[in-house]
Design a protein around this nucleic acid. Structure first.
Lengths: 144, 144
DNA sequence: GTATGTGCAAATCATTTGCATTCTC
DNA sequence: GAGAATGCAAATGATTTGCACATAC
């Protein structure tokens, strides 16, 4: 299986764009942890590693990462989008606590079937899906 | 079945807050169409009807509308959140075209079962779920 | 060599806040 | 009458853009 960097290089080449060390550093950092990320946090993680990469470079890269299928928007919270890397990882969905913000990831194969059904019914080519369940976790549900 | 205004009045009373004609006008406008809405668009709709209601009043009302269960966040697009009224309507999910932005709503009962399963497995109290399928509509999929 | 990418600083856009005034209860 | 809510204008915070310089191809 190709690495995420290889996938990106191929994508960039096909689009006639240029690759840079900044872009590869950002991608490596995104794939360095399992967690979701947001722009500011990713910027700080890179900064802590003494990588001088500006926020605009991150913002400018994101549309390409989405288009190449390396990442996906996960959810909108605290006034900004959160992303997750999806290449090479089992697709998963989120269960989010509305009180403490805790997020549990889970896998649900049956969603794939629903996706297929929808594609046929509405004549869509479905690329991805997002399923998010919102509620209160075991700790928070006691005093809603 | 209570009207949305009645539901809101009750919610406001329970919380010890105050109701105002501005709030009721906003709620009426939200429920006046079947469509999703965003703050700016709602503001303009009210303005066109010569209702002088400021954007901050809308922004300040939204958390209460979410809390009372009258509306729900639908999706984040074009740099801002889009909402939908959910009180008195069949719950539905979205199928969105990544190219033209077309949105198809659909109902999927089996998601309710998945929700229940998750609630048991992770000891959550689940209040709502969002399912969004992303892809290309019949027209757009021909030239991706 | 050319055109794309970068960092910086400034601009933009959605949302929030401070405050004086108005209104609900 | 007290405390909330409103509108306005200003502040905030995320994201985008203009531009001069650097660099990938």
């Amino acid at each position: 299986m190709k690495s995420e960097i290889e996938v990106f290089r191929e994508f960039i080449r096909k689009k006639g764009l240029r690759n840079t060390p900044e872009r590869e550093a950002i991608i490596k950092e995104i794939f360095a942890t399992h967690d979701h990320f947001d722009v500011d946090e990713l910027y700080l993680r890179l900064k802590n590693k003494k990588q001088k990469i500006s926020k605009p470079s991150i913002y400018r890269l994101i549309p390409y990462l989405l288009e190449s299928g390396l990442i996906q928007e996960a959810y909108f919270e605290d006034g900004h989008l959160h992303y997750e890397h999806i290449y090479g990882h089992e697709h998963h969905c989120h269960l989010r606590c509305l009180k403490c913000g805790k997020i549990i990831e889970f896998e649900e194969k049956s969603l794939k079937k629903i996706e297929k059904k929808l594609a046929e019914k509405h004549d869509f080519f479905i690329k991805a899906h997002k399923f998010e369940a919102l509620g209160y976790c075991s700790k928070c549900k006691v005093n809603i």
